[in-house]
Amino acid sequence: MTFDSVEHMVTEATDLEHSARIGATMAGEPNQTGEIPGGPAKMASRNLQVRYGDKQALYDVSLDIPVNEVTAFIGPSGCGKSTYLRCLNRMNDNIDICHVDGSVTLDGREIYAKDQDVVQLRTRIGMVFQKPNPFPKSIFDNVAYGPRIHGIARDREELNGIVLGSLERAGLLDEVRDRLDAPGIGLSGGQQQRLCIARAIAVRPEVILMDEPCSALDPIATERIEELIMELKAQYTIIMVTHSMQQARRVSDKTAFFHLGHLVEHGATSEVFENPQDDRTKDYVTGRIG
C-alpha cells in the first residue's frame, strides 16, 4: 500500500460525484463506469490496483456499491473477485506481498487513509467466508466474540440480548436455543454458516462482505442462506461473491462482472444478465466461458 497515492486519492475522492463523472466520461458507456444510477453509494472504489508481489491481480477498478442492496460479483476463477472483496475491509493488509493502490471509500471517507483504524473499520464492515469457520468455542461464545472484544455490551444482559438477537436475525435461534453451550463446530454446515453470519452481525456492521457463502453447502442450506441474505439487505449493505449465476440472479440487485483482473461490466442484475454490453460478459453469463 503506497500511502502517498492514497492521500492523493483521498482529496480527489472526497467529491465522489466528481470523480465518478470523470470515470463516466472516460469509459463512455454508462454501465462501464464506477457509478451506478439509483440509490446513494455506501462504498465506492476508484482506480483500485492490486498487486501480489509482481503479479497484478486488479486493474483500475472503479465501482459504487449502493446502500441496502445486494451486490453480486461474478466472474471466472482467479479473476480477482475475492481480492476486490478483501480490499473493502482491508483484509489484504494481512498479506505481506499484497500492494493496494487507489481509493476505497465508506460513506465518502477514505478507508485507506492513514488515520483510519482498521479495527474500527472491520466493526463497520463484517465478513463471511467461503468455508464456515466457527471458532472452536460454544455457539454462544462464537456470537459473543465480537461484542466482547470490542466492548459493545455494557453488561451480561445486554450481551445476551445481542447474541440472541443476532442468532434470531441469522435465522438460527430456533435451532440452537436449547444448546447455546454446545460447540459451534458440532452444527451442520449450513447452520455453521448461519452461525458465522450471526457472529458477523453481532458487532452491528453496516456492510457485510460474503465470499461465496454457499459454495460449501447443499441446496437446502443454500436456499436458507439466500433467503436470509434477502431479509438482511433491509438493514445491511451486502456484497457477495458467487460462482452461481442463478444465485446472483435470485439474490442480487446489482451485479459486477470481473474478468482477468478487470471490472468488465456492472449494473442492475437483470441488465447484466439479459442485456450484457460486453462480449465477455455475454459469453460468461450464457455459460460459454468460465
Binding site: 479495527v119 474500527q120 472484544i149 470490542h150 466492548g151
Partner: peptide, 19 residues
C-alpha cells in the same frame, strides 16, 4: 442510533486495545 452507539463504544476502547 444503535450503530452510532456501538461505534462510540468501540472507539472508546480502541486506544487501550492498540496499546
Amino acid at each position: 442510533t444503535e450503530i452510532s452507539e456501538t461505534q462510540s463504544r468501540v472507539a472508546a476502547r480502541l486506544a487501550r486495545r492498540h496499546a
